[in-house]
């Protein structure tokens, strides 16, 4: 056979295989979305948001208000702790430690922490904030999420700041501006969209975490604002409800899964859109 024909056939095989692989990925994604939407819509009603857990055997229509609020509480506190630390860390890496060994080391350390399975972070927080106190508590959950959040925010901040040309910093310094003011007035302001996007993606990411909460804030079947006690969260509730034997609980779990999926999907789409606009 002539060489061109062989090449052509090889080309078609390659095209076929990669298209197939892409299709499998897309089909799986849509299958998941389809299942979540179909099963989620059944249990989706106002009670989900305004009622707390009802004992499953009563077959009463309970809700997951306690879990929504608990999740929000933990996520907000984790963000309040994690975002400032992450941003300051990113500023350090980009502005003060750029091109230094320490900077590069800390940067790769942050990259490594981003890829640590979150269950390990949960276990670690368990050993320092749950075991010593003797019971699960909301603070531990928030701390675990903050630990996940910090390196992500740190690295995205660093990358956003590094995109700002050095000449802009030099121009500000050349006017006699002190370094901290250059960072505050010029650099951060130029990188604001990037930092904001990174922070939001990171928050959306921790909002969907289950594993680190299982060992830390655990769960609570009533509405509680006491961070010293176990606090309910959507993701852990989904886990418990979905693996229970009660029809109405399973249906609630699907509804909650739908809410969380839609939330994360929408935030991601909006933020990716913002990022696209910014980078011409």
């Amino acid at each position: 056979m002539d060489l061109r024909l062989i090449r052509k056939i090889k080309g078609y095989i390659m095209l076929f295989l990669s298209t197939l692989a892409a299709l499998i990925g897309v089909v799986l994604l849509f299958a998941i979305l389809y299942k979540v939407i179909m099963s989620g819509l059944d249990g989706l009603n106002l009670n989900l948001f305004i009622k707390d857990e009802a004992p499953a055997f009563l077959q009463a229509s309970g809700g997951l208000r306690h879990a929504f609020i608990g999740q929000l509480l933990i996520t907000v506190i984790a963000s309040l702790i994690g975002i400032p630390i992450g941003i300051l860390g990113g500023i350090y890496l980009s502005e003060y430690a750029h091109n230094t060994k320490t900077g590069r080391f800390l940067s790769s350390l942050a990259d490594v922490s981003i890829s640590i399975p979150t269950i390990i972070i949960g276990t670690f927080i368990y050993s320092i904030l749950v075991r010593p106190l003797g019971h699960f508590n909301g603070w531990a959950g928030a701390a675990a999420l903050a630990v996940i959040l910090i390196p992500i925010v740190m690295r995205t901040t660093e990358e956003s700041l590094k995109l700002i040309p050095w000449q802009l910093r030099e121009a500000a310094l050349a006017l006699g501006t002190p370094m901290y003011k250059v960072i505050k007035d010029i650099v951060i302001k130029s990188a604001l969209t990037g930092i904001f996007t990174g922070v939001s993606l990171a928050v959306a990411r921790i909002a969907g975490e289950t594993a680190p909460l299982l060992f830390t804030s655990f769960s609570n079947n009533t509405l509680s604002f006491n961070m010293n006690e176990p606090v309910a969260s959507l993701t852990v509730s989904i886990f418990t409800y979905a693996s229970s034997a009660f029809e109405n609980w399973i249906s609630l779990a699907w509804a909650a899964a739908l809410v969380i999926t839609v939330f994360i999907l929408i935030t991601n789409i909006i933020l990716k859109q913002i990022m696209k606009k910014r980078s011409y």
Binding site: P165, Q167, L168, E170, A171, A172, A174, D185, I186, K189, S190
Partner: peptide
């Protein structure tokens, strides 16, 4: 500078 450097 060589390139204009307006502040944001």
């Amino acid at each position: 500078f060589q390139k204009p450097t307006p502040f944001p």
